[in-house]
């Protein structure tokens, strides 16, 4: 049983946890569509753009302005999504690492806890 336990505690569990973290990371990238957001960062918002089919300079300027606004809306919203994802990463990654370390040290933490508890009682 001891060998089984050690195998589980120091090989299988951390392995499972790392896979879980990796899947959660992939899920977050997919949920926020990060790859698509980066690829289409400067694209029109919902393809909402006008084509210049001739006319005055004023009309051309209006079209350029409108298309720029469409791109700007897209840029702002997509940037916001990427920013939210980055904030989540900043919290998620350190927390994951701490949890992983705690998981690896679980038996040790139990022993240390018992030692501290007993020492406090004996003091």
């Amino acid at each position: 049983m001891l060998i089984d336990y050690l195998h589980w505690q120091f090989v299988l569990s951390p392995n499972w946890f790392i896979k879980l973290l990796w899947n959660l990371e992939r899920a977050s990238v997919r949920f926020f569509s990060i790859s698509l957001m980066l690829r289409t960062l400067l694209s029109y918002w919902h393809k909402d753009a006008m084509a210049f089919t001739g006319g005055s300079l004023g009309k051309l300027a209006t079209i350029i302005l409108w298309n720029t606004i469409s791109r700007l809306i897209g840029l702002i919203i997509r940037s916001a999504v990427i920013a939210i994802w980055l904030v989540i990463q900043v919290i998620f990654i350190p927390l994951s690492l701490i949890t992983l370390v705690a998981l690896l040290l679980w038996p040790l933490l139990v022993i240390v806890g018992l030692a501290i508890g007993l020492s406090l009682l004996l003091v």
């Binding site: 992939r26 919902h46 909402d48």
Partner: peptide
């Protein structure tokens, strides 16, 4: 925790680049 569960959802903004 299986990836088929964790990844089975629709991402946001998938249609933002479409009309």
């Amino acid at each position: 925790w299986d990836e088929r569960h964790l990844l089975a959802f629709s991402g946001i903004g998938l249609s933002w680049a479409s009309g």
